[in-house]
Amino acid sequence: MSAPGTAESTEAIARARAGDAEAWGELYRDYAPAIFRFCRRALPTRQDAEDATMEVFVKVKEKLHQYDSTRPFSSWLYKVAANHCWDLLRRRKIRQDKETEDVETVPLEHPDANQLEQLIEKRTSEEVRKALDKLPARARMALVLRYYSDMSYDEIADELGVRRAFVGVVLLRARHELRQALESTGVLAAGGAG
């Protein structure tokens, strides 16, 4: 199995583009787990993520000839996946949540750093994932694109359909919402424990 992004992987991509089913299988084996995780983070349910992963790979297979081999394959793959997931959310109208709100404004605050440190320190990865699940679709998608797919601000702007200048605002708002979700999880956990 070739690791994604290696020369071997590049060769597999070239062969898959030529129609080699074995090479396509290799690519799928290498990248499916990552794309599944991407969909899992971006979409509301596991079932959705499974469906989306399959659909993304069907699209990738169809569009493989469009892939520009001078760019990293994983970036292109994430872009296809992001397009698909975002489109899926749009079709379900989930994206309408808070979308029309004042995305361009965020209070220019200087939060209490110690309090933030404390909040982060106590949280496990699992708690963060649970909190992520509670976020509105766009906030979640913005965080996934940035911190999972490592997309640039330009790519995120393009994906979410916002001006590049406001990507930071979207991300910061998403972080605020995540903190709120984490806090409420903490309160619930404390309440449950007590």
């Binding site: 899992r40 911190y147 972080r175």
Partner: peptide
């Protein structure tokens, strides 16, 4: 916070569902 986010997202907490594994097999077999 950024690191925590990245770690939480990249962490592989669940295996690839068998349905997807079989889909891969299907794709591989062509």
């Amino acid at each position: 916070e950024s690191r925590l986010l990245t770690r939480a997202m990249l962490e592989e907490e669940e295996p690839l569902p068998s349905r997807l594994a079989s889909f891969q097999e299907t794709a591989r077999r062509s």
